[in-house]
Structure formats: C-alpha cells, structure tokens
Design a protein around this nucleic acid. Structure first.
Lengths: 333, 333
DNA sequence: TCACACAATGCACACGTTAACAATGATTTA
DNA sequence: TAAATCATTGTTAACGTGTGCATTGTGTGA
C-alpha cells in the first residue's frame, strides 16, 4: 500500500539496498546517488515502516511510561508534570507509550522487542510484580518515585520522609504542639513515608502521638474535605494539620471555610507536593516542594543512556524536598 | 535472543505454523496439540514479537494521541481527563502513544504503518497542517475539541460559544451589566469562540461592548492573576468577570484576595471547564462544565470502530456544555 | 600493460510472524 | 471396497528493511 524502498529503487534504477544506504547516510554510497534517491523519497512522501525496521534491528523506538494507575490516586498535576518531564527529554527520538499498570490483566505484552526501555512511576508495592517482570525480561529500566529494595537498579525518588519531617518541624518551630495528619492513599509507599516523617518529628521534639490526630485520606480532594470534617468533631482541636498532599489540603480548606474557621488564624495548614495551583489560593498554601518534573527528566535521561549502552551507575538517588513558606502557617504563643 | 514460535515448534515437534495457529486459537487445530503448545509457550515465558506481527498484518496496535502542545496552554486537568478518557476505552487492546504536535520538526514518522489510528486533540489552527497530513495518509482519524472545516471527518467538540453565552447570560440575569472577560491563549480557536459567546450575549441584551473590559490571558494561572490586576486599575470597575477557563479564574481570585475585594459580594466571577479543583475553593466557582472526558471517550470509541471497519458516519458532533451554579456569582440590585 | 586497490553497487538472506496452498491420514459415503 | 470428504499438519512465500559478501568498474602504480 504505502511507498517502500523498493518503489524508490525501481524509479531510481538501483537496488533497494542502495536506497537503504542512501536514506541512512551510509558512507558506502556515492553522494550524488544519495541525493538523487533522497529527492525521490521526498517527492513520494516516503516514510519508513517501523515494524520492518524494528524487526531487523531489534529496536522498537518505544519507551513505556507506566504509572501504578492513571485514574484513582494519581493527581492531575503529578501526571502532567511527569509526562511533560519525560517527553521533554525524549522528544521525537522515541515514542512514548503511557499506561497504567492496573490496566493489564497479564504482562505478556511487556517484552524487549516492544519496548526499548521502561520508566516505572511507581506509587505502590503492588507494582513489584510488574517491576520484576520487566527486570527479568532484561529491559533497560528506571524506577521512579518510590524506593524499591532491588539492588542493581536505577531508582530516583524524592526524600518524602525527610520532607514530611521538615513540614512538621516547621509547624513545631512555630509553636504548634497539637498537630494532626491527613494520610494518603492506603498501600502507597509515600503514604507510609510521610506518616513516618510526621511521627519522627513529633517524637524528636517530645510531643506524644495522639491517635485521634491521625486520619485517613486517599490523596484526592474529597478525602481531604472529609478528613478535616472528622478532625473538626474532636473535643480538643489541633492547631495545625499536615496534609499528605496539596489536593487534600485544598479539600481541608473547604471544610474549614464552611465552618468559618480562618486559616491561618484559627488553624494552620501545610501541604505536600507544591502544585502550582495552591500558590494561587487565599491564603497561599505553605507546602513541601517535591521535584517531580526533575525526577522525571533525570529518569528519562538515564534511561536513554542505558538504552544507548552508556555505562550509568545503578544506584538510588534521592532528590531533595524543600519547604516553601507561604501564608497558611501562623506562629502561635 | 527471545523465545520465538520456532523454539516452541522444536520442542513440541511440530512446525512453527502449527504453533502460530495454536496461539491464535485457530479452528484448524487439534485441541490437544493446542493445549500442549500453549503449555510450552507459557513455560518458556513466550511473548510475541509485535514488530513481526505488525509487519505481516499491517497493523501496529498503536493509537496516537496528539495534543497541540503538552506544555504551554494545556492545563493539567484537561490533559489528565483526556488521557484517562481515551485510555479507559482502549485498555490493553492498543498502545497509546502520547505526543505534542509541536514536538515534531517534520511529520515523517506519521504513517499508516506506525499508527492504526490517530486522535487529534486540537486547540489551534496551527494543527491543520498536521491534520491534513494524517488525512492524506489515509489513517483513521478523529479530531476532537475544535471545529475543523474539513467535511468527511469525525469531529467532536463542545459548544464553547454557546457555553460562554450561557455564562454571560447568567451574569446578566443576575443583574450585571458591567461584565469583563479574560481571554484565553491567543491563536486558540476556543479563545475566539468563548469571546464570541461573550459578545453575543452582551449584544442580545442591549449591552454595549467596552474595550477596556476585554483583557488578554493565556489560560494559565498567572495570566488570570495579571489580567485581573489590570482590570482592577480601571476607573469604572466591572461587577462581574467571565474567565475563559477555571485556571485563570483561580488566578483572578488571588488578585482580588490581595486587594481585599470579596467574591461574590464585591465582584462576581464565572469560569469555564469545570475543573474538579474549583468546586473546593471558597467560594466555590460557578462555571461552565465542558464534557472533556466524555468527548475523549466518545472519540476513542468512534476511532476504534473506524479502525475495525465498522461504518460510522463522518459528522461533526457537539456535546453540550452546562452551567454549574455555585457560589461565585451574586445577584445585584 | 597488467596487477592491484578501492569505490560503488547488487545479490541473497535474515528477522518472526501469518496464510495460501499442499500433503497426509482417517473417516464417512455410495 | 473404492471414492470422497474432512481434520490436521507441513511447506513455502511474503511483509519491508538492513547487512555480509560478491561483483563491477575505475583509477593507480610499477
């Protein structure tokens, strides 16, 4: 149906081998014939058949970008930042195939022939089966966003525990001692890490941990709203709340607004992620910046090096989180 | 390197053709040998080479999802909703390749061999060159989100002009006559349509259009913030502002908050899109719901029908926008 | 003038899969 | 019992591209 190198060969009166060499800028060809062939190819609107090329070169030109899920528990900003970051690096060198791991019933499609490399944006330990499958298939891989025990693996993530620690320490430094937490999606590693950071900061400062101040969420807006409502029913209200992500902080703000509780006068709030959105709220949200786009870019770069056979150390890299002070935390006493 | 059907054939003592038939559940095979072969394939962890299959079947199992751009002017919620919608339909039947049209220097990679079908999520007339290229290559295509003049094309979009009309009419019905607009990204069709809806609503109600009330934006938060600042410098302030999308409305809210101008008491605000985010703001944003996820799903469904040879009418479909009343508009007088 | 080197091109095969056609043996039919 | 049908399997070629090796032609040096 489409134009092939044989069609070009016929017109140019050469063999298809010569055409192949011309289009690939082989040194084994006369510059004149090369130009002639390229002109014809251009006129015919020739585009190579990647299936055929892939078959013989054992290269698919595909890079897989896998999220744990692309629906539940993945915020829009996170998703967008990741795709932007990765896409920025690979441009038109490779095709980017975006998938949710939970979309697969079996992993048969995952194959060295179909993917030159794979980026796993992992949020849950449930992804481990997938990750091992990929490693077993010997596909160049980077695992981002969550610590995976496997040695001999490129693993880039932000130091969430330390970030959460910073957030809560910031609250403590501002005089708060009654500090609650709204947790993230159950089963996600980040949920656990952020909670640990919260608890450590409290313990290091001699503040006892109160069960009533620990409420569940699932990273989405509505869950933050509900969680804050739950907190507001307590006899002894907290003076500050650490929200495990920014989306939930927005939900929490809504619940506070409905009760007429002003932020930060009556209640301090701190988030996690640094969605660009939340800096435009009133009050602007104090939060922990997580370098998602940077993680994505760095992951994509290392993956490409891996694919191209450049030696790159298989190590775990932590990128720093950062406290962004805005207007939602007040010093008390 | 990998396991092929020939390897399986050797072990099972049959020809590779028989293996192919077994794995594809051909009726031309003895159920017993089929099961035997399938067992062996499973034990060897066989996965088909899609390049080879694609080559002979002339089918790539790839669907391209193209945005005008995936960085500037594309909001995170929009992007996420679209990918979610499309992915929900194609699941693991096809691979979804996500690209920005502006990432390409030339369109050589766009080929019937490499894409079984293409979804263009178009925002700008600049995409037309790309769209014509795709049509010229005879690739099954649906064009979403923006009206394209080409007849004989599946074109699904929301009726933005009518949506904007509804928004502004709603303001007028609430007694507003001094109504400003913050425009979207220059060059985007949606920008123009929403502005037209704004102007028509004013004219139909005998309100003259004031140049000072028309300010530029580019769909992002910051531009909404700036635009509102600009409006606030006017002698004769508007009583209501129509923001061409929700992100800019959030920016506008920020600017108002800084000046201590309360919404909706001193200024009414209405947005466009219905990001889930904005329903959690205080006040919750009144806006026009645009059925992006529905457009994406319907587009994906029709594309798959097209690919599978089912006859589907090449027509333009408008999906309805809808006024969502919340708390950011006040009745005056 | 002849042998040799070298540049440019062609021939033939390979990659893994599917499918048209051929071949085999078993079973049914007249 | 011979012929015909049918179920099952094998043989072979094809898809479009890249590459090792052979081939051709041209120029160079002794």
């Amino acid at each position: 149906m489409s134009v092939t190198i044989k069609d070009i060969a016929n017109i140019a009166n050469v063999s298809h081998t010569t055409v192949s060499r011309a289009l690939n800028d082989s040194p084994l060809i006369n510059p004149e014939t090369r130009d002639k062939i390229k002109t014809i190819a251009h006129e015919l609107n020739y585009t190579p058949n990647y299936s055929a090329r892939s078959l013989v070169l054992e290269k698919s030109y595909n890079i897989g970008l896998f999220f744990s899920t692309i629906t539940k528990g993945t915020s829009s900003h996170f998703f967008h930042d990741v795709v932007k970051g990765v896409n920025h690096i690979i441009k038109d060198k490779y095709s980017l195939i975006v998938k949710g791991i939970d979309d697969y019933q079996n992993y048969n499609l995952i194959n060295k022939n179909n993917f030159d490399g794979i980026i796993v944006m992992t949020q849950s330990t449930k992804d481990n089966a997938f990750i091992y499958r990929v490693l077993e298939k010997n596909i160049p891989t980077v695992v981002l966003n969550r610590e995976v025990e496997e040695p001999n693996l490129i693993n880039i993530l932000s130091d969430d525990k330390r970030g959460a620690y910073k957030a809560v320490r910031h609250l403590i430094e501002n005089g708060h001692r009654k500090i609650a937490i709204i947790e993230g999606q159950e089963g996600f590693k980040s949920t656990l890490e952020r909670k640990e950071g919260y608890m450590e900061a409290l313990m290091d400062n001699g503040i006892s941990i109160s069960k009533a101040y620990i409420v569940k969420g699932n990273y989405d807006l509505e869950s933050g709203y509900r969680a804050m409502q739950q907190l507001l029913q307590l006899e002894d209200l907290p003076t500050a709340v650490f929200c495990s992500n920014d989306d939930m902080a927005v939900g929490a703000m809504k619940a506070l607004g409905e009760k007429g509780i002003s932020i930060p006068d009556k209640m301090s709030l701190i988030g996690f992620d640094d969605n660009i959105f939340t800096s435009y709220l009133t009050p602007a949200l104090t939060t922990i910046k997580r370098p998602i786009e940077k993680i994505s870019k760095e992951g994509a770069e290392k993956l490409i090096q891996l694919i191209e056979g450049i030696d790159v150390p298989k190590e775990r890299i932590y990128l720093k989180t950062e406290l962004v002070q805005r207007e939602s935390v007040r010093a008390i006493k």
